[in-house]
Design a protein around this nucleic acid. Structure first.
Length: 1059
RNA sequence: GCUCGAGUGGUGGAAUUGGUAGACACGUUGGACUUAAAAUCCAAUGGGUAGUAAUGCCCGUACGGGUUCAAGUCCCGUCUCGAGUACCA
């Protein structure tokens, strides 16, 4: 928005109304949104109108928005979309007699503030505070019914002390698979003491050591702690992580898109680091199952299901064959474990493939194959993750020379390595069944005939697998499979697993794609861990000493030796005597180093919905009573981009809190709506740049850039077209280095430096391209590209406001505009995500200023269904603003406020009750756009009816109030009410006002509607038919026709089938 | 590639369980008011076609079929767009 646009508006505004007149409702004839909105925003703030109470006889309703990250850019019109929707529901529920909790806060830890700090030295806390102030100001202008007394900020120590506490709770818990819940670690210690690992079925890494009670009791304290670390729900592990060198931190899987960082698009590499991990995998099954009962969109549920990635199958062990392997040192015990979802196809195993990184590869490779294997491993390691992902077509692999023994048939199975097997999934090894798996099939065919690649074993009766694998599971006719022959898929699965278990070669197993989550970030601006290290073992700081506040650092960068930014803090050690953070120089024995990592962004947002319930509790994260009253969120509104991050992690934490008895609910968000993104409309100007190449006789050539031209979007400049254009006023000789146009010899030679080629300066010469080519032995080519242009300079039919464009985009740069044959300069438009660099960000403040918050609220809803992505286009806003004015007028005449006490007409009552029903149904179904339409219809009808009766206008104000609360409050007070409208009971729909004596029936012939007839609404089928047939128009249609059939549906339609 | 979702005027979008397609709004055109502009109000507005007109006829919900008295809505196939996911054994 240009400031001059605003100025102009203000001017108009003042002309229309009394300038500087003190606001007085009774003399205000015209709708003045500025005065009305200011008045009521102040009123709400002063009276704390929307303060929710934790004890009430009313039913509760908890509406929550995904809280924003307060970025420096402020809110744009896309942000409030969801807030407006939840605000409408909240206000509606208050009218309906609910005690409503509708809070707002800030997810205020995060990268942008930190990066700004790195650049400017400004403490992120200061930036964050400023940004929050701006967000608050913007939100206040829109008139949300938030209970601001419950605001939370994740970066506030008052808040993050409890985030730290939850971390401690995770550390002090283990997962009991028998009872399928998290339990306190002390209970595990008791059981270890009594019976060792024998009775324990815990969620841990594979292959943990087992021990007896006697052994446990004999372990040292340190050994015991080390063992317990393997059981805790948050634990330290050396894992391959996604390290982003540019950001200097690790990233979670969901923070990586297409192999580069989601934020900034920086490359990501694999790196082994010691990190805090969250054992979310223990909860995989519950996270999957509990999706069922959630009222979420299918697509989000599906995304989570895929992310969790459950697959049911079996673990199968293949022993390495000593006899068949030329290598003597392969021990009999050596085996390869594989995970398969198709144990029914076990007799189809033709070979095995290991991931190149698999730990057994080196041990089993024969001397003959060693060079090839080494070379392959090297080649794979050199390929980046991104390359491997991008290139899924190329088949590659190497035979190790080793053979394993088929556990059932006893036949030798060659062992290969190939990068289509991922080290990180399952066991990093597969049993390859080419007849039943596409990838195995492709691999087998690619290496067919080579040493170690036998013919494909086909176990499907009568199925031709020479071209492709048979992957269907139904009606699988299994053959050549001994005891599995003839069994169905399901039976064969079951029988095969039983047999494998019986002979000790495998067992049924369910695998999940969901990995344990990395919880450490090498950042400054995040929650510090409440952890210090003693003898290399992590120790939790007692809860009563929380919060552990972020230390001051001189710079927000990693240290020289690569430690995270907290490594720069000089006061960052823990004294176990004083129980406080002390200087690193303190060399007492009781002082230990503190953890240098901080928590990731999702830590604070994983439990904030509970903090709102009791936001100012200084003794605990929230009281039991508060949580029991509010339960969980009834309506959660936010973007779908958090499907695999926030929405999964918060479900995980809630399950933990539930298991530990901290909350009564299993899920945080019962009903969720994902609002669609509001897209910005950006404009693009096409630029064509001539590149001129000159060459001398010695064969040297120089490349010059001619003056760039802006060309109308509908023109396509080709080389041959351009030949007709003269090079008038172009400075075609230019500087090698930075292509600056130059216009004199001196300047040119300065820039040319030691270049040996003769320089040609064409200074304001008229040269056709042809002449240029002839005279200079030059060549000319053109390149087109587009640059974004602010949408405010794009007029009707995409014609550019050239002056404005020049002023704001080009400074004093010289350029030429090439217009189309009509003399217009056209630009292209694109609808895309709002971003600063595209000049397409629309700020809600300007709309509030010009049209008011009520209009903004209505308009955002009017744009279309909430869940749908839609472009922002201010063009239509005048229609909504017009509606506001018409609404105002219903309550006013030329002399000011005027409402009659007379009985309203039946028509007006009908309009009112029709609208009550529609609006109520719409809000319950979250169809906000259609409500706005029905308001418009109602106001249009009432205006036409000249209705100004209190009987209608009073309930109408309440109907409108959730959508346009300011005007509703004003009208309500003009109607004589002393209290806020916010808790006025919602009008009750009464069907009797809609009852009519007749209905317009559509009369159709062969299914095509010809006209309508007014018919009595209570007429029976037969009566209707008689009435219709007696009608002249109907008879006209039926002339010379035979009625084959008559369909009469009372209340709906009459249809004649004629011929 | 796979999974999910969506295709309706110039535009955003309406349309209960199949029952008057295009509500409402923008835009456009014409008109009223005005010295003029803005604002406001009125009228027309899916396409085609016949008629001076009232009015009528035909075609229309991405495309091709089908079910039905009746299909934007249900079924089958195709295309396009969007989102998610990416060798998951």
């Amino acid at each position: 928005m240009s400031s001059c646009g605003l100025q102009r508006f203000k001017f108009n505004h003042c002309c229309k109304h009394t300038i500087f007149a003190p606001y007085n409702a009774m003399i205000m004839k015209h709708y003045d949104h500025v005065a009305v909105e200011k008045k009521w925003q102040d009123y709400w703030a002063k009276n704390k109108t929307f303060k929710a109470v934790n004890h009430s006889d009313k039913p509760k309703f908890y509406a929550l928005d995904m809280f924003p990250y307060p970025s420096g850019a402020g809110l744009h019109v896309g942000h409030p979309l969801g807030y407006i929707a939840s605000d409408i529901v909240s206000r509606y529920k208050r009218h309906k007699g609910f005690n409503v909790l509708h809070p707002m806060g800030y997810d205020s830890f995060g990268l942008p503030a930190e990066q700004y700090a790195i650049q400017t030295g400004q403490h992120p806390a200061i930036t964050t505070k400023e940004n929050i102030a701006r967000y608050r100001e913007q939100m206040d202008r829109i008139g949300f019914s938030f209970d601001w007394d419950r605001e939370v900020r994740t970066s506030s120590p008052d808040y993050y002390k409890y985030t730290q506490e939850i971390f401690i709770m995770l550390f002090e818990s283990w997962y009991d698979k028998d009872e399928d819940r998290a339990r306190p670690i002390e209970e595990l210690v008791v059981r270890f003491r009594e019976s060792g690992t024998t009775t324990i079925n815990a969620a841990t890494d594979e292959d943990l050591r087992e021990f007896t009670a006697v052994e446990w009791n004999a372990f040292t304290e340190k050994e015991q702690q080390e063992i317990l670390l393997d059981y805790r729900l948050t634990f330290l592990a050396d894992t391959e992580v996604n390290w982003c060198p540019a950001l200097g931190t690790v990233l979670a899987n969901d923070e990586i898109v297409n192999g580069v960082s989601e934020r900034g698009g920086h490359p990501v590499v694999r790196k082994k680091m010691r990190q805090w991990m969250m054992r979310i995998s223990a909860f995989a099954e519950r996270l999957l199952n509990d999706l069922e009962d959630l009222d979420w969109s299918d697509s989000i549920k599906e995304i989570q299901r895929n992310w969790i990635g459950k697959s049911v199958g079996a673990m199968v062990s293949f022993k390495l064959e000593k006899a068949s392997s030329p290598l003597e040192r392969i021990e009999e015990r050596l085996k390869i474990d594989v995970f398969t979802t198709r144990p029914d196809t076990i007799y189809g195993v033709t070979f095995m493939t290991l991931a190149p990184e698999h730990e057994l590869v080196d041990q089993i490779t024969t001397d003959a194959q060693r060079d090839a294997v080494e070379a392959y491993k090297k080649a794979t390691a050199a390929r980046s993750e991104r390359e491997r992902m991008a290139d899924v077509k190329t088949i590659s692999g190497v035979f190790t020379g080793a053979y394993a023994t088929h556990p059932l048939s006893g036949e030798p199975v060659p062992v290969w390595i190939g990068d289509y097997v991922l080290a990180g999934y399952g066991t990093g090894a597969v049993m390859a069944v080419p007849c039943g798996d596409e990838r195995d099939h492709a691999f087998a065919n690619y290496f067919a005939g080579q040493d170690g690649m036998p013919a494909i074993k086909n176990i499907f009766d009568g199925v031709d697998i020479s071209e492709e694998a048979y992957t269907a599971k139904d009606n699988t006719p299994i053959c050549n499979s001994d005891f599995l022959n003839g069994l169905s898929y399901k039976e064969a699965m079951k029988v095969a697993i039983e047999k494998l278990e019986e002979i000790g070669a495998g067992k049924g197993k369910t695998n999940y794609r969901l990995r344990d989550a990395v919880f450490s970030r090498q950042r400054y601006w995040g929650e510090p861990f409440p952890v210090y290290y003693k003898d290399g073992l992590p120790q939790m700081i007692d809860r009563k000493h929380l919060p552990i506040e972020l230390p001051e650092v001189d710079e927000y960068l990693p240290t020289e030796d690569g430690a995270p930014p907290l490594g720069r803090a000089t006061t960052w050690s823990w004294c176990t005597m004083e129980n406080k953070v002390v200087s690193n120089d303190d060399d007492r024995d009781c002082v230990y180093p503190l953890e240098l990592n901080t928590m990731p962004g999702w830590a604070g947002s994983s439990w904030y919905m509970f903090r709102y319930m009791d936001a100012n509790n200084e003794n605990e994260m929230f009281s039991k009573e508060a949580q029991e009253y509010w339960q969980n969120v009834d309506l959660y509104i936010g973007g779908s981009e958090h499907a695999t991050g926030h929405l999964l992690y918060s479900r995980f934490w809630v399950k933990l809190l539930h298991d530990l008895g901290k909350v009564t609910v299993k899920e945080p968000f019962q009903k969720m709506i994902n609002q669609g993104m509001i897209l910005g409309e950006s404009g693009y100007v096409k630029i064509t740049t001539p590149y001129l190449t000159e060459s001398n006789s010695a064969g040297f050539s120089r490349y010059s850039q001619g003056l760039r031209s802006f060309i109308s979007e509908d023109l396509e400049i080709k080389n041959e077209d351009y030949k007709d254009l003269e090079l008038e006023n172009r400075y075609i000789a230019s500087v090698i280095n930075n292509w600056k146009p130059v216009n004199n010899h001196q300047h040119l030679s300065d820039n040319m430096g030691s270049h040996s080629l003769p320089t040609r300066v064409i200074n304001n010469l008229k040269y056709s391209v042809e002449d240029f080519i002839n005279d200079f032995k030059g060549n000319i080519t053109f390149k087109d590209r587009i640059i974004p242009v602010s949408i405010e300079f794009i007029g009707h039919k995409n014609i550019l406001d050239e002056e404005g464009f020049k002023r704001s985009h080009l400074d004093s740069e010289k350029f030429e505009i090439i217009r189309n044959e009509n003399g217009d300069f056209k630009v292209s438009r694109e609808v895309e995500k709002m971003s600063k660099s595209k000049f397409n960000v629309v700020n809600p403040d300007d709309i509030c200023e010009q049209y008011g918050a009520d209009t903004l609220r209505l308009y955002e809803m009017f744009l279309g269904p909430l869940e749908q992505a839609k472009p922002w286009n201010t063009a239509g806003i005048t229609g909504v603003y017009g509606f506001m004015k018409k609404l105002w007028k219903l309550y006013h005449n030329d002399n000011g406020f005027s409402v009659s006490e007379d009985k309203a007409s039946p028509d007006s009552m009908k309009t009112l009750h029709k609208t009550i029903k529609k609006v109520q149904d719409d809000i319950e179904n979250f169809s906000f756009n259609t409500s706005v339409s029905s308001f418009m219809i109602a106001v249009n009808e009432l205006t036409a009816q000249k209705c100004n009766g209190r009987e209608v206008l009073e309930p109408l104000a309440i109907l409108v109030s959730p959508y346009a609360p300011h005007i509703a409050e004003e009208l309500w007070s003009l109607l004589g009410h002393k209290e806020s409208i916010s808790e006025a009971p919602f009008p009750v729909f009464d069907e009797k006002h809609l009852v009519e004596s007749s209905k317009k029936y559509p009369i159709s012939f062969n299914g095509k509607m010809k006209f309508t007839l007014d018919l009595p609404v209570d007429a029976t089928k037969d009566e209707l038919e008689k009435l219709v047939l007696s009608n002249d128009k109907v008879q006209q249609q039926l002339e010379k026709k035979t009625v084959r059939k008559t369909i009469v549906v009372p209340g709906k339609i009459v249809n004649f089938v004629i011929s």
